[in-house]
């Protein structure tokens, strides 16, 4: 950055229009933007890290309840969403590539594709949430939810309320338990299962919020691209947007196995 030192405080007329007044040159501005985004992503990692910490700790405390509760999630939808996000990362990467080579139309196309894939993710997520609502598996006391005691019900073959057909996965519960005994629903187990859903909603909810912010960001980028703001010399907004988008995808890549897959479909109730 030392090679071109301006002596006066105004940029020369030849400077790029997007160069902000306090940067010496485009190179410095791009460097600052990139570093800033990386540091921001580090703070995001720490932010999600706290929740991952809570998840891991409680999983180790309540392995059985978490495994059983995890079984209630729809793996197919989660898997579809994983694929959708991976595809969106690809289109985002292509958008960055086209911005580097300066193909305006392709940038716009790729950004719109990314947005569509992101929206798909959110729609699928909304269906999943709605499904949880239908099954009264929303934790907390704001929504009318049955106590999370389906585990005990299954074991003892009792139906407390009329509920939608069970997932195929939980039907596979291998443990046959002596029937015909009097047993109260296991409140302790239920509250631990509720905890799983709380963490599930907190983590996926905050992730979804990041997706929404990401889509808002993509809209701005698309408009900028449409107005031909980017060029091979100046495309760092697209790059930074790409970094953010990839980060959000990667968080999901961690969330999906942790919440949907880990220990869920084999060991459930395995005693």
């Amino acid at each position: 950055m030392a090679e071109a030192v301006h002596t006066t405080m105004e940029h020369p007329a030849s400077a790029h229009a997007a160069l902000q007044h306090h940067f010496e040159n485009m190179e410095q501005q791009r460097e600052a933007g990139t570093l800033g985004m990386w540091i921001f992503l580090v703070t995001e990692i720490m932010f999600f890290g706290g929740m991952f910490m809570a998840y891991i700790l409680y999983r180790s405390y309540n392995a059985d309840a978490f495994a059983a509760a995890s079984n209630r999630l729809n793996v197919t939808m989660g898997f579809i969403n994983t694929i959708v996000l991976i595809c969106s990362s690809l289109t985002m990467a292509l958008a960055v590539y086209y911005s580097q080579v300066g193909k305006r139309k392709m940038i716009v196309v790729m950004l719109i594709l990314t947005m569509m894939l992101g929206t798909t993710f959110l729609v699928v997520k909304a269906f999943e949430y709605y499904d949880k609502y239908e099954k009264s598996e929303i934790p907390g006391r704001l929504f009318p939810s049955r106590p999370f005691n389906w585990y005990a019900e299954e074991e003892h073959g009792k139906q407390v309320t009329q509920e939608p057909a069970r997932d195929a996965a939980t039907e596979r519960n291998p443990q046959a338990v002596p029937t015909g005994q009097e047993q109260k629903p296991d409140a302790s187990f239920a509250s631990r299962a509720e905890m799983f859903f709380f963490i599930y909603f907190a983590m996926t909810g905050i992730h979804a919020l990041h997706m929404v912010i990401g889509i808002g960001m993509l809209i701005v980028l698309t408009i900028m691209a449409w107005r031909d703001r980017f060029s091979p010399e100046y495309h760092s907004p697209v790059e930074l947007g790409g970094l953010y988008w990839h980060f959000v995808d990667i968080v999901w890549i961690f969330l999906f196995p942790l919440l949907y897959l880990l220990g869920a479909h084999g060991i459930s109730g395995g005693h």
């Binding site: 910490m53 509250s191 631990r192 905890m195």
Partner: peptide, 16 residues
């Protein structure tokens, strides 16, 4: 939401 992420009565850990 009254969910006990840190409430020991329902499985949470205040030390966390």
């Amino acid at each position: 939401f009254r969910v006990g992420i840190f409430d020991p009565a329902i499985g949470g850990d205040p030390i966390l």
